[in-house]
Design a protein around this nucleic acid. Structure first.
Length: 318
DNA sequence: AACGCGACCTGCGAGC
DNA sequence: TGCTCGCAGGTCGCGT
């Protein structure tokens, strides 16, 4: 999936195309893509048709479009404000397309938008593996009173289904002190903690490995003994690598990870750890040492480390 | 609280 | 050629 940089690429791409436009119709081509919308297809479409899109907001890997319900909200009711929520899962795409463009093989949901000169009419949700999806959710006040997520219009509301997600390292309201305090209270390994979206969000399997490599830390380093300097180093590394990836348009190994215009990012060329099994560690090579990156199963997925500069912790203390 | 696992899905390449 | 296997960027919920 798209991790934070890929989702942020989508958010930025989307905002100029959809903000201020009204959703005029909804086609649900595969109801599995709205299975998280408990009230079903009719309710889903009913909430969206006639609603105006106010913004595109992201928290971690969750994206949502706050809606102004100019048509559907009965006037004078205290019905809560709602948002169209999107999670891309492992293979989801949000694409802006002209009506004439043939349906994608894995097109799941089509939203038609009020026409604007020079802008595509459709927002399409395409998803091969169907781990992602769309649903409508309420907007609720944030726990800390800060903006609910990264958007163009800072608002102290968060999509209910994203309220359990922590801020990400690129969020101006991210607090390292509070992250470090919670990290020390965990009895787990560092990578598991980095992947825990309730502790720090946006980091997935690729950027966790990249951040650990940059910080020269092993994925199994116990969190309850981690020094402040080490935690700071790995968090800074995560921030740096995700900013670099963002500047490159995200990481794509194939056509599955594309921006709203269908273009791939090129950060895969800059990866130092992920996917580099049996290739030389670039940092060791630069120091004249030959060390081959190794791949291990951890948390039912692959982890890539350099055995020389990211040695496995021996007794927990280190 | 933490963890391991299965569930949710399709498609690709490797090996036979 | 076709079969099976392992693998893929995530999250949720269930057991223990």
């Amino acid at each position: 999936m798209p991790e934070l940089p890929e989702v942020e690429v989508v958010r930025r791409g989307l905002v100029s195309w959809v903000r201020g436009r009204t959703i005029t119709s909804v086609d649900i081509l595969d109801p599995r893509s709205i299975r998280r919308h408990a009230l079903g297809a009719e309710d889903f479409a009913g909430n969206l048709e006639g609603a105006r899109v106010l913004d595109v907001v992201r928290r971690g890997k969750f994206l949502w479009l706050p809606l102004e319900e100019s048509v559907t909200a009965p006037s004078g009711t205290d019905r809560p404000a709602v948002a169209l929520m999107a999670h891309l899962g492992m293979s989801g795409q949000l694409l802006m397309q002209d009506s004439g463009v043939p349906d994608e093989k894995h097109l799941k949901i089509r939203l038609r938008l009020s026409p604007v000169d020079g802008m595509p009419e459709q927002l399409r949700f395409v998803d091969q593996r169907i781990f992602g999806g769309l649903f409508v959710t309420s907007l609720v006040p944030t726990a800390d009173g800060g903006p609910g997520g990264l958007g163009e219009v800072p608002a102290p509301y968060i999509a209910e289904e994203a309220a359990h997600i922590a801020r990400d390292p690129l969020d101006p309201h991210f607090s390292f002190d509070s992250f470090y305090r919670r990290l020390r209270n965990r009895k787990t390994g560092l990578k598991r903690a980095l992947l825990d979206q309730g502790l720090v969000s946006g980091i997935g399997n690729i950027y966790a490995d990249e951040a650990l490599w940059r910080a020269r830390l092993h994925y199994a380093r116990p969190t309850d003994t981690l020094r402040r300097g080490d935690a700071l180093r790995v968090l800074d590394a995560a921030r740096e690598v995700m900013l670099d990836a963002l500047a490159a348009g995200g990481t794509s190994f194939d056509s599955l990870y594309v921006n709203v215009n269908g273009a791939s990012g090129y950060f895969d060329r800059s990866l130092n750890a992920y996917g580099r099994e049996n290739q030389e560690c670039k940092r060791c090579a630069a120091a004249g040492i030959v060390s081959l990156m190794k791949r291990e199963q951890f948390m039912n997925r692959s982890s890539y480390t350099c055995p020389v500069c990211q040695p496995r912790p021996r007794n927990g203390r280190w």
